[in-house]
Computed example of a mutant assay.
Amino acid sequence: MGFKDRTRTAMVLAGCLAALATVPSAANATPGSGVSGTILAQGVSEGTLKLKARGKTDVVVRTITIAPGGSTGWHSHAGQVLAVVKSGTLTRTLDDCSVEVTTAGKAFVEPSGPRHRHIGSNLGSEPLVLYVTYLLPQGSPLSNDADAPPCAGK
Results as ranks from 00 to 15, higher is better:
S87R: 12
A67H: 03
R117D: 12
I66T: 15
S125P: 05
G124N: 08
P114R: 12
H75Q: 08
A104G: 13
G113I: 06
S112N: 06
G88D: 09
P68H: 02
S125C: 00
S125I: 07
D96K: 07
L82E: 05
E110S: 13
V132D: 05
A67L: 05
P111W: 04
H118V: 05
T89Q: 14
T91S: 13
L90T: 02
V101C: 10
T133H: 03
G113A: 07
E110M: 11
G70P: 02
V99A: 10
L90I: 01
H116W: 04
H75R: 04
E100R: 13
G70H: 03
G113P: 11
T89L: 04
V101H: 06
G120M: 04
A83N: 02
F108E: 09
D95M: 11
S76V: 04
H77S: 12
S125G: 14
G113Y: 06
E100M: 10
E100Y: 03
A104M: 11
D95H: 13
L130R: 00
T89S: 14
G79Q: 06
V99I: 14
S112R: 05
G73D: 14
G105T: 11
G88Y: 05
E126R: 12
I119N: 10
L90H: 00
V99K: 11
S87I: 01
D95Q: 15
Y134H: 14
L82G: 03
Q80P: 02
D95F: 08
A83E: 09
W74Y: 12
V129W: 01
V84F: 05
T102I: 14
T102G: 02
S121C: 13
H77G: 09
S76W: 15
G88L: 09
